[in-house]
Design a protein around this nucleic acid. Structure first.
Length: 284
DNA sequence: CTAGGATCCTGTCAGC
DNA sequence: TGCTGACAGGATCCTA
């Protein structure tokens, strides 16, 4: 998926484009993509959109919250009756093409447009919750702090708890720190020159502190670039998120030169995930 | 409790 | 061309 910066970008887009709109009708094309009764959201007004980790929380006027998790391939695409459209999530042509399509799982008809939830692999979902029960949701409740709020000492203690796991696996664990995904894990570890297979218990306190700071830094850069995927566009002139193109140092850059030392970036496998490193800058 | 691998699902791409 | 296996910006479940 869409990692934290993409979700943040979507949050901002939704707050800009669909706020105060009424959900007139919900069409569910895939049962597992929508959890809970559609009746609880139909007729309600969207009053605000929040984010926690990679999770979107759409607050409605009737004290119901619609939680949206995009997982690997989820997309949120807004088509306005008139004015600006908006799209974010897993980047595919669906951002531009005719909708609904084969991957459209849920359609929310709004007063001023239509919101499509597309998801190729069906891992993502929308879930209906009473607003005052969001914090008790199992996933939300288990999330660690966001990188900007993470206390370095607490993070170091968490590394000790997973001392024998590779550091990349640990920072991908949302219970340790919320929001880091495969792109920013690779980017943050490159930033502090640590090999992703390094056992978490081997990091010094300084390295732990630097890693938290690096995670916040790379995600900040991405949010400022509009996410690593194209995230917003206007009907007339499209602008797209271009973090990967402009800022990524290692992700999807295998075979290319390290921007720091010139060595060739390679792709390896860590914690079951494709992982990009500079073999010179990042030694175990 | 942790660590690691399988699993959910669809689509694409490299290699034969 | 057609087939096969690997893999994918995530998280959970199962096993040891």
């Amino acid at each position: 998926m869409p990692e934290l910066p993409e979700v943040e970008t979507i949050k901002r887009g939704l707050n800009k484009f669909i706020i105060q709109q009424k959900i007139k009708k919900v069409t569910v094309n895939c049962e597992k993509s929508f959890i809970g009764p559609v009746e609880l959201v139909e007729g309600a007004k969207i009053v605000g959109v929040r984010r926690r980790g990679k999770c979107l929380l759409v607050d409605l006027s009737n004290d119901i919250t619609m939680m949206i998790h995009l997982r690997m391939t989820g997309q949120v695409i807004y088509r306005a009756l008139r004015g600006a459209d908006f799209a974010g999530g897993h980047p595919t042509d669906s951002f531009f093409t005719e909708l609904p399509n084969k991957q459209t799982r849920v359609i929310l008809k709004l007063s001023e447009g239509t919101l499509y939830f597309n998801d190729q692999r069906k891992f993502g979902f929308l879930k209906v919750l009473p607003s005052d029960e969001v914090e008790q949701d199992k996933f939300i409740a288990s999330l660690g702090a966001e990188p900007w709020e993470m206390n370095a000492e607490e993070f170091y203690q968490k590394l000790q708890r997973h001392a024998k796991a590779p550091i990349k696996a640990v920072i991908l664990d949302q219970k340790v720190m919320a929001g880091v995904g495969n792109i920013y894990a690779d980017e943050a570890l490159f930033e502090i020159k640590v090999h992703p297979k390094t056992l978490a218990g081997k990091l010094s306190k300084k390295q732990a502190k630097d890693l938290v700071r690096a995670a916040a830094k790379v995600m900040d850069a991405s949010i400022n670039a509009g996410g690593s995927t194209m995230a917003t566009y206007l009907k007339a002139d499209g602008t797209k998120g271009d973090y990967l193109e402009k800022f990524a140092q290692v992700f999807h850059r295998e075979g290319q030169e390290c921007k720091r030392c010139g060595a060739e970036i390679i792709k390896i496998r860590v914690a079951g995930r494709g992982t990009h490193i500079c073999p010179e800058c990042q030694k175990c």
